[in-house]
Structure formats: C-alpha cells, structure tokens
Design a protein around this nucleic acid. Sequence first.
DNA 1: GATAGGATGCTCT
DNA 2: GAGCATCCTATCC
Length: 213
Amino acid sequence: MPSGSADGGPVLALAGHFYRRDPRLVAPDLLGKVLVHDDRAGRRAGRIVEVEAYCGTGDPGSHAYRGMTARNATMFGPPGHLYVYFTYGMHWCANVVCGEDGRASAVLLRAGEVVQGLDVARARRPSVRADRDLARGPARLAQALGLTGADNGADLVRDDSPVWLARPAEPVAPERVRSGPRVGLSRAGDRPWRFWLDGEPTVSRYRPHTRPR
DNA sequence: GATAGGATGCTCT
DNA sequence: GAGCATCCTATCC
C-alpha cells in the first residue's frame, strides 16, 4: 500500500472498492482527498476541492457518449485508474475512472490545493503569483502536479503506482459539500454533477460555456 | 472585480 | 473542417 505524509499527518491510499460506485457518489467523496504524484521532480500532492461526475455512454457531456475511441479507452477499463486527456491544443486534464468495469464513468478533478511539493509546482507555473491559483482549474491542477498523457491509465490502487489518492487525517465535514451545474460544456452542462467544498479559496470560478465565434 | 478574445493542436465527423 | 470537460492577457470598470 503506498504511504506517505502529504500534510504532516498519516495517510492511507484508497482501496479499489472506493472507485467501483456511481460517479455521482464517488465525486463528493473525493473532496478533501489528496492526489499524490511521484516523478523525477519529486513528490507533489494536491488536496481535491472541486470535481465533476461524468456518467459514461448515457451522458451527452462525457467523452464516452459516442462510444469507445482510442482517446477515451481508459474510461472503459476497470475503475481506480487515471484518465488523462489533451484538450484545446495545450492542456492536460485528469479524471478518476469509477463505476463498474466497462461503464466508462469518471470524475474530473477540477481544482485542488497544493499541499506538498510547492516549490516544484511554483517552478512549473511561473506565471502564477498566488499559491491558491497553482491548481485552481483542471488544466492547472494537472500541470501543478506534473500529470500528462504519460500518466494516462495509471493504476491508483497498485502498491508501486506513482499516482494514488490518499485519505487525509481530517475528514471533510459533509455540510461543506456543495453541488451545481458543470463547467465549460456545450451540452448537458446543466446537470448538477459538479461538487465542491464551500469556502475553499482554491475552487475555480464558475463560468458557463462560451460559444465559439 | 469582471469580461472578451486569442492561443493551439488533437480528435472525431 | 469543426469542435473542444481551458487558460492567459488585456482592458474596463
């Protein structure tokens, strides 16, 4: 079992059954958890404060809506893996695959607070002035933690995985979890499957989909 | 504080 | 060729 200390307290990696549930149940449970990534630059960790659920082939907003392709194949695999995709010609975004094997459900990690490896995260995002903005947004979170296409398919449960999710010492108070419409979708953006922790300065600012010119 | 517009290239039709 | 689960900068309050 991967172990380590992201915030000074003890942490435990989440087991496989955590992910084998409906993404709308997994998503709020991911809030407050700590995503840990080890690579050559060292260990970086982010405390998740904002997520979105994507419900597989039945969800018009999901990459899986039109069936399996080379890009989204990871989502159709077993839960507990990382689905990382490239978008807008320059950004990586990270999801956690969940639900039953083959259902293509996932939870997008939209924002977090960097709690370990701050120096490396700052170096990777030199244009950012405030630490709170280091991982405030899905592409920012991936960049701050060093997640790219090379991490697509990573197993979050295996003992020797460089990427995993940890349970922090302090659980999240359930009354702090809020939900609302998803961000940036041209379709099905109105479903209230975005979840965040109320009062966190690192939650991204809500912006509805802006139509292309 | 808010908003508008451009960047940039992969993916799928 | 169109669209994209976004971000940054400039500009205007």
